Simulated scan of single mutants.
Amino acid sequence: MSETPGLDQPDGPQTSTALLERTEVVPQLQEPGDHERFAHYVRKEKILESALSGEPVVALCGKVWVPGRDPNKFPVCPVCKEIYEGLRPPADGED
């Protein structure tokens, strides 16, 4: 048995595949639903793709939605802003 929990490997020269389960924690804002109160940062090309396809986008903070409102009417998401300014790695799955 390996020392890493959840990664049991058989004895001998056999090969196997192990599954690691990971729970990703999205940073919490002040309250649930706060994502809806902010304008979020999304890559420009993703917004254009979403406008053409109707597919949802992923903000830097991890929020997933289909854009459809004027972001100028809302304050900037503090988590997106912090990530954009380089303080945290992006949560949108891209570098």
Rank of each mutant, 00 (worst) to 15 (best):
40 H>N: 00
16 S>F: 10
65 W>Q: 06
59 A>L: 03
2 S>Q: 07
66 V>M: 11
19 L>Q: 14
60 L>N: 00
22 R>W: 11
49 E>D: 08
20 L>C: 09
15 T>R: 14
14 Q>N: 06
61 C>K: 02
17 T>F: 12
2 S>I: 06
6 G>C: 11
3 E>L: 14
42 V>P: 05
33 G>A: 00
25 V>T: 12
34 D>Q: 13
22 R>C: 13
12 G>M: 01
56 P>A: 10
16 S>A: 11
48 L>T: 07
22 R>T: 08
49 E>P: 00
61 C>G: 00
54 G>S: 11
13 P>H: 10
15 T>Q: 15
3 E>H: 11
60 L>C: 02
62 G>S: 04
22 R>N: 07
59 A>C: 01
35 H>D: 08
1 M>D: 13
52 L>W: 14
21 E>C: 09
34 D>H: 13
1 M>V: 11
9 Q>G: 01
56 P>Y: 13
9 Q>A: 09
23 T>C: 06
43 R>V: 03
15 T>D: 11
39 A>F: 07
6 G>N: 10
12 G>T: 01
31 E>T: 03
42 V>H: 03
62 G>K: 08
46 K>C: 13
32 P>T: 13
43 R>C: 10
25 V>D: 11
21 E>Y: 15
43 R>L: 04
40 H>F: 15
51 A>R: 09
31 E>M: 15
22 R>A: 07
42 V>G: 05
29 L>R: 04
34 D>S: 12
37 R>W: 01
13 P>W: 11
23 T>K: 07
41 Y>L: 11
50 S>W: 05
12 G>E: 01
17 T>E: 15
27 P>E: 15
31 E>H: 12
5 P>V: 12
9 Q>P: 00
56 P>Q: 09
36 E>L: 03
19 L>P: 07
34 D>F: 05
54 G>F: 13
5 P>W: 13
50 S>G: 00
21 E>H: 08
40 H>K: 09
40 H>P: 07
47 I>T: 13
16 S>N: 07
3 E>F: 11
19 L>E: 15
16 S>K: 10
20 L>M: 10
26 V>F: 14
44 K>A: 15
51 A>K: 09
64 V>M: 10
62 G>I: 07
39 A>R: 10
38 F>D: 02
63 K>N: 05
25 V>H: 12
11 D>G: 08
24 E>Q: 03
57 V>N: 04
14 Q>A: 01
6 G>W: 13
48 L>A: 10
44 K>I: 02
17 T>P: 01
50 S>Y: 07
20 L>E: 10
66 V>L: 11
60 L>R: 02
39 A>Y: 08
32 P>M: 06
35 H>F: 06
38 F>N: 07
4 T>G: 01
40 H>V: 08
37 R>D: 14
22 R>F: 11
59 A>M: 00
37 R>K: 15
65 W>I: 01
12 G>W: 04
48 L>F: 04
4 T>D: 02
37 R>G: 04
6 G>I: 11
40 H>R: 14
58 V>M: 04
35 H>E: 02
39 A>G: 04
54 G>M: 12
41 Y>I: 09
43 R>E: 09
42 V>K: 02
31 E>A: 15
45 E>H: 05
12 G>S: 09
50 S>K: 03
23 T>H: 14
10 P>K: 09
28 Q>E: 15
44 K>R: 06
36 E>Y: 06
59 A>I: 01
30 Q>P: 00
52 L>G: 05
7 L>W: 14
52 L>Q: 15
60 L>Q: 09
